[in-house]
């Protein structure tokens, strides 16, 4: 479904991703964890070319892109196969909750407005915000905004949804409502890659977990394995530090 091969990314002289290889199967949930600055978000943002990688190949749902020989149209096609949920929600501030969900359907999928609105309402209902359809983002709480942005991603019916620290900007009391929604989606067939600092959540929803440090994938495995019995020293010390905090 998703395959990343020898992906590399540098910002000027700083190598952020050194040699990244991984695979995600259809319907699987992959979590990426690791210390700040390890390259997790950059990796996610390379998958839809919000950051341009320097080398490697990315395959999503049958479309393979060679990073060094990429055309504008390829990037466009690749982006249409994924949807992203951002740390800061990034809702369109001049549009209502419903318009936020329908906008991309109308513009990029050329869907008639009425049909887009029907789908939009369905997904807003799924994240529990049908009653906020006509509200503007500024009137919604952070948790509600993030749920709208999840509805926006779901409505695109993408091959994969990329979550970039979806709860990191939220007030603590709003985190659980967003995690609940993501959890609920994860039980369906949606393929997801989640960059997160919420370890309990990662352990619960993931089929697979990647631990990253210093631009490498240090360890990869089933959550019970990676959290319960990490093999690498670097992973062990990271997990240990987390446990001490609790």
């Amino acid at each position: 479904m998703i395959k990343v091969n020898q992906l590399k990314k540098s910002f000027n002289d700083l190598e952020v991703l050194k040699d990244i290889n991984f695979e995600v199967k259809r319907g699987e949930v992959l979590s990426i964890i690791g210390p700040s600055g390890s390259g997790k978000s950059t990796l996610l943002r390379c998958l839809n070319f919000l950051e341009t990688p320097n080398a490697g190949t990315i395959t999503i749902d049958g479309l393979t892109v060679d990073v060094e020989n990429v055309k504008k149209q390829d990037i466009q096609q690749l982006r249409k196969k994924s949807a992203m949920v951002f740390q800061n929600y990034n809702l369109f501030k001049n549009k209502t909750a419903l318009q936020n969900v329908t906008e991309l359907l109308i513009v990029t999928k050329k869907m008639p407005k009425a049909e887009a609105e029907k789908i939009g309402m369905e997904y807003l209902a799924q994240v529990g915000l049908a009653d906020k359809a006509n509200k503007y983002p500024v009137t919604l709480s952070g948790g509600q905004q993030q749920r709208v942005s999840i509805a926006r991603a779901l409505a695109l019916n993408p091959s994969v949804i990329l979550f970039d620290e979806p709860t990191s900007s939220l007030d603590p009391e709003l985190v659980s409502e967003v995690l609940q929604v993501i959890k609920q989606i994860s039980t369906k067939d949606t393929t997801m890659i989640i960059v997160t600092h919420e370890m309990d959540f990662a352990r619960e929803v993931s089929d697979n977990v990647i631990f990253m440090a210093d631009g490498y994938i240090v360890e990869e495995g089933h959550p019970s394995q990676l959290f319960g019995n990490p093999q690498q020293a670097r992973t062990k010390s990271f997990i240990q530090q987390l446990n001490e905090k609790h």
Partner: peptide
């Protein structure tokens, strides 16, 4: 970024 990621 949200526009671009959504395929616009």
């Amino acid at each position: 970024e949200a526009c671009l990621a959504g395929g616009m």
